[in-house]
Design a protein around this nucleic acid. Structure first.
Length: 481
RNA sequence: CGGGGCGUAGCGCAGCUUGGUCAGCGCGCCUGCCUUGGGCGCAGGAGGUCGGAGGUUCAAAUCCUCUCGCCCCGACCA
């Protein structure tokens, strides 16, 4: 088996059948499996370990910006959901209900939370009395349920895990600052920890969260050319404050409604990691969040078995101090089998050690992103591994960034735009007149939606890609998940 | 919710058109031996009410009806 083709015969080709490849990778790498309930999945230990590492990094960033964690209940009274008109309209179609307990019908039906603005708003109205109580900066890690019509592992499941932050502020300006602050937290988390480059921007009226005044998002580009909304941050204004009567007595003795935000990212990000970094051989996990960062594969001919194992265990002990390291000493699998297995699982660095290496006083290091093999001296191995993990993290980011840049198209007219969406897809960066009619027609005719109005760009005159009207508004468009 | 595809051993499948030695194959799994630098080899072995319920028939994995579930592509959403 020395040809490229034979390496990963157990998963579909990414180039030929992206969707099947995506599903195969998840199942075969043991990130997750289908549950007996329609649309639900089991996050297996390998996938959950990945999620825990993602949580740890993001949680630290959330706490570093002054927030604390709490936990609110799974069940929400039906009446709560109905109080905010846009909110109920947005979520009602996908809400799961509890109407009975044991053999008794409930006096008031409960919904299983699709998001927690309402129940948290209710609690905030009890807790907040004075301007001195503000801001309230609370986050929760939880599960939510949205009964989607069709589902996909990690990207869209009936139940998913996420964090949702819910804050209250004294002024509109503070709320807007908070909304943008958390968008930046997501941007840096995605780029620095997950090695996923993103476009940060504002959603259009049509695409914003049900009940928000303004929604911001970070948008990532998958390697099949479709965009993924990777995180959202909403400025809720006083919409929920008014219906839940969240008021405070201000310094000037005036009773005022608070200004709120909410923001979240979910296990959907795992789907993003797979589709941004994965390749024909399977997963490629960013070292910062990989459950296993280094796997040691000992080469153990019977005669050298004890010697090699002793060295491998010693290396494992040393590397444990600088990384998450596993030793794969299973005897029922050949080294070649293990190489493929760990590549499928996306482990960033593989360390091979056998009789030849021991004699030479070095080990073989192989990086997952490029497949590049190097040798590293036994002396200073810790530093070499640390450097290599950093290099893989950076390598994954640069590769993804280059892909996003190369697949962000400037088009000169509407026909070219349509052609791009039909062939290579990717982002299209173009002026838009701001008219919802144009937005709808674009979606109808090209399948692309306005992903966001970027924050970073400075406006300059252009002609709307659809109608030709003069506009300073440049937007990113793409087919989205 | 529209269009398409599919449910036969843990996984992937053949068999169905033309009912009757069709309960079969590959992988995986178990036992033993052997091997180990890119998915080793040999020998033996375990495992399936053919998604479910009705119906037709002397006889149903195969034909008919209903039903449950899954995947893909769209529309909707994180």
């Amino acid at each position: 088996m020395d040809g490229q083709e034979g390496f990963v015969e157990h998963i579909a080709s990414k180039a030929e059948d992206f969707s099947q490849w995506y599903t195969d990778v998840i199942l075969k790498s043991e990130l997750a499996d289908y549950a007996p309930v329609r649309g639900c999945m089991v996050i297996r230990p390998y996938g959950y370990g990945l999620w825990e590492n993602m949580q740890a990094h993001l949680d630290a960033r959330i706490k570093a910006t002054g927030h604390r964690n709490a936990y609110f209940p799974l069940f929400i009274p039906e009446s709560f959901l109905r109080r905010e008109a846009q909110h109920v309209e947005g979520f009602a179609p996908e809400v799961a209900w509890v109407t009975r307990a044991g053999s008794e019908d409930l006096a008031e039906p409960l919904v299983v939370r699709p998001t927690s603005e309402t129940v948290i708003g209710y609690m905030y109205s009890k807790w907040i009395k004075s301007w001195r109580d503000l801001p309230v900066l609370i986050n929760q890690w939880a599960n939510v349920v949205r009964w989607e019509k069709t589902t996909r592992l990690f990207l869209r499941t009936s139940e998913f895990l996420w964090q949702e932050g819910h804050t209250c502020h004294r002024t509109a300006e503070e709320a807007e600052e908070e909304t943008l602050r958390m968008l930046e937290v997501y941007r840096s988390f995605l780029t620095e920890d997950l090695a996923i480059p993103v476009i940060a921007g504002r959603k259009t009226e049509k695409e914003k969260f049900a009940g928000a005044v303004r929604t911001y998002s970070v948008e990532a580009l998958m390697t099949d050319g479709r965009a993924l909304q990777a995180g959202t941050s909403h400025n809720l204004g006083q919409n929920f404050a008014k219906v839940f009567d969240i008021t405070f007595l201000d310094q000037d003795d005036e009773l005022r409604h608070v200004w709120q935000t909410s923001w979240g990212v979910s296990t959907r990000l795992i789907g993003g990691i797979i589709m941004v970094h994965g390749d024909e051989r399977g997963l490629a996990l960013p070292p910062r969040v990989a459950p296993t960062q280094v796997v040691i594969v000992p080469i153990m001919p019977p005669a050298a078995r004890e010697t090699v194992l002793a060295v491998a265990r010693d290396i494992q002990a040393r590397l444990t101090k600088v990384s998450r390291v596993d030793l794969d000493a299973r005897e029922e699998y050949s080294p070649g089998w293990k190489f493929n297995e760990w590549e499928l699982k996306g482990v960033p660095v593989r360390l091979e050690v056998g009789p030849r290496d021991i004699k030479a006083g070095h080990v073989v290091l192989v990086r997952r992103d490029t497949g590049e093999k190097t040798t590293a001296s036994m002396d200073g191995l810790e530093q070499a591994v640390r450097d290599l993990l950093k290099a893989v993290q950076d390598g994954l980011y640069s590769r993804a960034k280059r892909f996003m840049d190369e697949n962000t198209h400037r088009v000169s007219d509407y026909d070219e735009f349509k052609a791009v969406m039909e062939t290579k897809r990717g982002f299209v960066y173009a002026p838009w007149c701001g008219n919802q009619g144009c937005e709808a027609v674009i979606k109808e005719e090209t399948g692309a939606t306005i992903r966001c109005i970027p924050l970073a760009e400075s406006p300059r005159p252009g002609a709307c890609i659809r109608c030709g009207s003069r506009s300073n508004l440049w937007v990113y468009l793409a087919k989205a998940y």
